[in-house]
Computed example of a mutant assay.
Amino acid sequence: MTAPLSGRQPKAVRSALAVLEEVVAAGPGVTAKEISAALRLPPATTYRLLNLLVADEYLVRLPDLKGFALGRRAARLALPAAPAVPTAARAVVEHLRAQVRWGVHLASFTTGQVVMIDPDPDHPPTAAPVLARFPQASALGRLLLAEQPDWRALVRELRALTPHTVSTRAEVEAALREVESAGWARQLGELHADRGCLAVPIRAPGDGRLVAGLALAGPVARVAEPNGALLDLMREHAERLAPLLA
């Protein structure tokens, strides 16, 4: 059973958040003395909060030990910024939309998450927080997970969103093996029972890094039996997008 908060703990939480805000406002290199003065906190309290935030990787000490900067975990407090989509890339996506009756979505993987950068306005995709939290249940997410040394580092929760969602470790690993073998991904009714999705990777021309994914969303029955011509069309447009997004 979780212990109840004491009367002093909410104040400590607010003070820790204030310290983070001050580091953001002041920029890298701000010192404990400067933070203490700006927030009117006792030096001992400031040092204690800074040590806790450094230990939990929300802050880092700079190499000269004279100041602080935001750490790895602080980046998770904000939604990842979607990169700008070049006009030429949008034109490629629109060209594909004109040739199919599916929803066509373009997603970036440069932030380490599935971030929609050109969602189909006529076929709205699954909400961004759901895609970020359950990448194993989306075709785009599986492209990303299949590239990871350990997919579990990006999957925060295994949950059945529909009766068809992969929701065990063994099922996820089997799905990712399919992606590695086929070179493309799909999901059948795992986010919404009546909808499915196909996705192909977009890789940097120079080193083959996975930078984005191109997805088609449609009825489950059509996704279950994709024809070769459709996949070839997706790959063709993915190749055209690669130099524009790398």
Rank of each mutant, 00 (worst) to 15 (best):
A12N: 10
R14A: 15
L17N: 02
E22M: 13
V24H: 06
V24D: 13
P28M: 13
G29L: 10
V30T: 13
A38W: 09
L41A: 01
T45H: 10
Y47N: 15
L49S: 10
V60Y: 02
R72M: 12
P80R: 07
V85G: 03
P86T: 10
A89Y: 08
V92Q: 01
H95K: 14
H95I: 01
L96N: 05
A98V: 00
Q99D: 12
R101T: 13
R101M: 14
A107N: 11
V114M: 03
V115Y: 08
D118M: 09
P121H: 02
H123I: 02
P124N: 12
A127P: 02
A128R: 13
P129W: 08
V130A: 11
P135L: 08
S138R: 03
L154A: 03
R156G: 14
P163Y: 11
V166K: 02
V172Y: 06
V172N: 00
L176H: 04
L176G: 03
E180G: 10
E180N: 10
S181I: 02
G183E: 06
D194R: 01
V200N: 12
V200T: 06
I202A: 01
G206Q: 09
G208Y: 06
L214I: 06
L214Q: 05
P219I: 09
A221E: 15
A229F: 04
A229I: 08
L230M: 01
L230W: 01
L233K: 09
A242E: 11
